[in-house]
Amino acid sequence: MATERYHRGVVYLLVVLLALPVLGTLIYSLSERWDATVLPHGLTLHWYTTLWLDDRFLMAFWHSLVVCLGTLLLSTILIVPAVFAIHYYFPRLDRWMNILILLPFAVPPVVSSVGLLSLYADGPISLVGTPWILLGCYFTIALPFMYRMLSDSLRVINVRELVDAAHLLGASTPRAFWAVILPGLRKGLLASLFISFSFLFGEFVFANMLVGTRYETLQVYLYNMRNASGHFTSALVMSYFIFTFALTWMAMRISRQERT
């Protein structure tokens, strides 16, 4: 009993410790003034309305959405058939793919940004300063999440025999994939898309170093607004937090449904 109480106490303490900064930021973003006093003065939605009426913020938000959704579209088009092909035609490659997809994480973003800057600054393919270079970079970030989650989903459904059975019943490989395999991947795909989106939406290093203000994303905007009012940036951080929290929650719900 005492042990259980101790464990509960530790968990509650941890929750309070993690929630405290978020709670502080939320109160700060909702207060009119909070400087030399213990408690804030007045409640207001002024900072939120200012933020959500700011064209530059809306444009940065839009840019982030375009880059993230574009990346996820590209990833879906390339990774889903690739995972299927590996599991159905070349199952031995799966082991190598699991190593390969982790390579982008072996190089710190700052280091790879320097390399990408010198490679794509000029020359035949000049991509620095455009969203295209972010699409490429973000693809490598989304790849491990998507590959692993889709690969796990395929392992559960025994791809080979399902496709073989569909073939013997007269279906072509694309038809078998579409009618039999893809429905089994739906939840794994959605969960991986939500998780990747949350991750990409908060990406800063590549966005700042490779594109900067030429195609300002939300994180770069947040960085550039660091000298603005603390209440305003708190409203910005809370908006971002609620958005990604909702996405992560949805991803968790979907993956829990998939497990059951």
Binding site: N158, E161, D164, A165, L168, S172, P183
Partner: peptide, 19 residues
Amino acid sequence: VPQKRGIGMVFQSYALFPN
């Protein structure tokens, strides 16, 4: 190709389409 052989097969795992 398997589609053109006129052969039916029951697999050990049954391979029923779960969806």
